[in-house]
């Protein structure tokens, strides 16, 4: 009797790196998260071949949702071409057989760190945000058991107090990225460190957003057509970054979120943060037939 006689021949039984039971658990937690918008669901965060803190939460969700029919886009701070984005993209296509793209319009799954694309997402697209710290109450309540109780009671007085304190001390709200927002009028979530510019895009969006923190083992979701309201006082309006008037020095695009590139003379140039939007603009300028979708912002103003 030989060893091969005792073993079955190798056969693929799963794709997307994670084993079937891990994916099943994640699917269940995602369904729960969609059912209770903004509520953090704990999950058993698995090992994936990147380090904690580099997007393991997002990666696990993407791996679970991914199948060979998907087209995947990976964004790192708005760019498709950073080392981290390129590595994750390559990994995802190799373990799933899915196609990859840089174009927001073509993507069915978009895993992103710190940005929401400028082009309006559709109902058939899913945005997966990598989250370093999912707990908006952490700055005001270090005890996570108590924080969970506060979420259960919708006890957000301390969150509002934080806002009050910032205005008293600094004359304005100091939350930059990760602006705490109320989802569906019930749970306050941190929308991952996306800039204030991107938070209004999540409000009543057509697409599903899943936010996942691998190290903290929590995921939560904003289902399509769900209210996402940044916490603001009635008489102190919400302000996005003042990028509306800036022009991208490479693509000539204006009215989008920009990256600042300091110059030797002390000044600064700006380039559009959603890099592929910039690329498409340049190619259109070169006469290529490239499609650009509708954008959330036009001329630096959020459309409604």
């Amino acid at each position: 009797m030989s060893l091969t006689g005792l073993t079955r021949p190798w056969k693929d039984f799963s794709y997307g790196f994670l084993d079937a039971s891990a994916k099943r658990e994640l699917r269940r937690k995602m369904l729960k998260a969609v059912a209770v918008p903004g509520c953090q669901m704990p999950y058993a965060s698995r090992e994936v071949p990147i380090a904690r803190g580099w997007g393991t939460g997002g990666l696990q969700v993407t791996c679970t949702l991914l199948n060979p029919g998907h087209t995947v886009k990976v964004i790192d701070q708005g760019a498709d071409d950073s080392v981290n984005a390129a590595s994750i993209r390559r990994f995802l296509t190799r373990v799933s057989g899915a196609r990859s793209t840089w174009d927001t319009l073509e993507a069915s799954l978009i895993q992103s760190r710190h940005r929401v694309p400028e082009e309006i997402l559709r109902e058939d697209q899913i945005l997966i945000l990598q989250v370093p710290n999912p707990e908006p109450l952490r700055p005001v309540e270090p005890n996570m058991s108590v924080a969970r109780q506060m979420h259960a009671d919708a006890d957000y007085g301390r969150m509002w107090l934080q806002l009050y304190e910032q205005i008293v001390r600094s004359g304005r709200v100091m939350f930059g990225a990760a602006y705490p927002s109320l989802v569906h009028g019930r749970y306050v979530m941190t929308p991952s460190p996306i800039p204030r510019w991107d938070v209004p895009k999540l409000n009543m969006a057509r697409h599903l957003t899943i936010l996942s923190a691998g190290r903290e083992k929590r995921l939560y979701a904003v289902p399509p057509y769900t209210r996402v309201e940044p916490l603001v006082f009635d008489d102190v309006p919400y302000k996005v970054e003042e990028h509306g008037h800036l022009t991208c020095y490479r693509s000539g695009l204006k009215g989008f979120f920009m990256n600042e590139i300091p110059q030797e003379d002390g000044g600064a140039l700006h380039e559009v943060s959603d890099s592929h939007l910039g690329i498409k603009a340049i190619r259109q300028g070169d006469g290529e037939d490239v499609a650009t979708g509708d954008t959330w912002y036009t001329n630096g103003e959020m459309g409604q």
Partner: peptide
């Protein structure tokens, strides 16, 4: 009291819990 928050903030917290959302009124 929250010893490191402002004194007025400590008072305002009660109003916030009661649902007051106007900064000037707080």
């Amino acid at each position: 009291l929250l010893m490191r928050n402002s004194s007025s903030g400590n008072v305002a917290e009660r109003l916030l819990i009661a649902g007051e959302r106007r900064f000037a009124v707080l």
